[in-house]
Design a protein around this nucleic acid. Structure first.
Length: 432
RNA sequence: GUGGCCGUAGCUCACCUGGUAGAGCACCGGAUUGUGACUCCGGAGGUAGCGGGUUCAAGACCCGUCGGCCACCCCA
């Protein structure tokens, strides 16, 4: 019998790692709440047409990376490859767009790509979207919020902000024509990928890594020369607000973003700690998208961060708190009536001391082997029930960590108070 | 989709130029009839990813295949 494995690129997150994930999720949720953002929970599956119409027909995502399938009624559905489209769809569907909306969501996304460090087929993002604000202070708000988040997470020293404006759709169209015209004159100096992109997504050529292509780009027309007045002014204002808040950034004129719906401000937080997939958070404005998907002409802006990549950062920088041992108290017993006594006493102990993590030994074995498990569990205390304790309605409390403390046998009625007195303010104990 | 490296015990790895598997850690039991950590003793655990080929003989060599990692591409 062949054993069944998880799908390539879709990983299990084991208890060792989930501590770090929870730390990330808690911290993000707290920061978002402190700026007044509300959580929206969205389906993982949407109509395929939603993504085709928003992300762009000629993007790699739509052309070859979507997990699409026919529903039983023949309708084409797709596992969401990103979150913005679904969020916009929900905002339109539920008429949320009459007022400003500050929203966030969290969950899995799916793209059929070759897995590598920081990239998998099922990956997890936290996304943030704001609808209904056309002015650039919201651009700055989002960026400031992410900057605060990196500080809270303790990774701010290892991420850098890149910023650009890609102007309006018509700015970009004019620029695209100029760029294609220029590059067409140097066709044989371009690498193979860039030659292909000349016809599909010419702006992506700007961030090519090929030295020959980069040389050609030296003399290429600049997108910034094609921006209209409003785009220039808004971008200048974003920079001004960031300066005022002392958030450092670098303007990267090659920064374009892969999805079609972006316009004006785009930004990326990048790191050199993660190998080739160094973008940890990215986003931008998408003022035409709501209308494009059938809503009123409401401006939008948003970003997404990759949870896997942030977790890798936390790990690399040892920024997350050490994982807590799973137990505060480990309970051993000699079976039979001692087991019954332990069960009864522990239920009332859990009621009396909420939050105290009490692990009851299961699976039998000698006291010796049970004590070994107690030690391995990282628990601070072992509670011991044997025949003597049952006979005297008491329990033995043995300290496993403290130096110099003796084990004591207490009447059952006093155990809760005893443990309560000795609980540290921070109830978590450090394990392994 | 393309390329490079790699698949030996649960984990990290060894077995040198082919002679039918070994260590450390982890796990289980014991030394200590009801008490962990250190130490000592013992035990279990592998059809060497899978399939084919070369050979008297393959974990070692060759081909294929599946899987992993990293990079290209793409992007969070």
């Amino acid at each position: 019998m062949t054993t069944i494995r998880a799908i390539r690129g879709m990983n299990d997150i084991l208890p060792d790692e989930s501590d770090r994930w929870q730390y990330l999720e808690r911290t993000v949720a707290d920061v978002l709440a402190s700026y007044g953002y509300g959580e929206i929970r969205l389906p993982i599956v949407e109509q395929t047409a939603l993504f085709r119409r928003s992300i762009g027909e000629v993007t790699d995502i739509v052309e070859k990376e979507m997990y699409s399938f026919d529903d039983r009624n023949g309708e084409s559905l797709t596992l969401r490859p990103e979150g913005t489209a679904g969020c916009v769809r929900a905002a339109i569907q539920h008429s949320l767009l009459g007022t400003v909306q500050r929203l966030w969501y969290s969950g899995p996304m799916f793209r059929y790509e070759r897995p590598q460090k920081g990239r998998q087929r099922q990956f997890h993002q936290i996304g943030v979207e704001v609808f209904g604000v056309a002015t650039p202070e919201i651009d700055a708000e989002l960026i400031l919020m992410t900057a605060r988040l990196w500080r809270e997470l303790g990774i701010d020293g290892d991420v850098a902000l890149q910023l650009n404006s890609i102007g309006s759709g018509s700015d970009r169209q004019a620029y695209r024509a100029a760029l294609v015209s220029y590059l067409s004159g140097h066709l044989d100096a371009l690498d193979e990928d860039s030659q292909r992109r000349l016809h599909t997504n010419p702006l992506r050529i700007l961030d090519s890594k090929d030295p020959g292509t980069r040389a050609v780009l030296q003399q290429a027309p600049l997108l910034s020369d094609y921006l209209d007045e409003e785009s220039r002014a808004d971008f200048a204002r974003v920079c001004e607000l960031l300066d005022a808040a002392s958030v450092p950034y670098v303007i990267n004129t090659a920064l374009v973003r892969g999805l079609d719906y972006y316009n004006k401000t785009v930004f990326e937080w990048v790191t050199d700690r993660l190998g080739a997939q160094g973008t940890v958070c990215a986003g931008g404005r998408y003022d035409g998208l709501v209308q494009q998907l059938g809503g009123k002409p409401v401006p939008g802006i948003g970003f997404a961060m990759g949870k896997e990549r942030l977790v890798l950062m936390l790990e690399a920088l040892q920024a997350a708190p050490l994982p807590a041992a799973p137990a505060d108290v480990y309970v051993v017993n000699s079976g039979g009536s001692a087991e019954c006594a332990a069960f009864a006493a522990l239920e009332s102990l859990r009621g009396a001391l909420p939050g105290l993590r009490i692990v009851q030994h299961a699976g039998g074995g000698s006291f010796r082997s049970q004590m070994k498990k107690a030690d391995k569990s990282g628990a601070r205390w072992a509670l011991i029930w044997g025949d003597d304790e049952v006979a005297s309605a008491s329990v033995t409390v043995k300290p496993l960590r403290e130096q110099g403390e003796e084990q004591v046998t207490l009447p059952l009625a006093e155990v809760a108070a005893f443990l309560q007195r000795r609980r540290t303010p921070d109830t978590t104990t450090q394990g392994n």
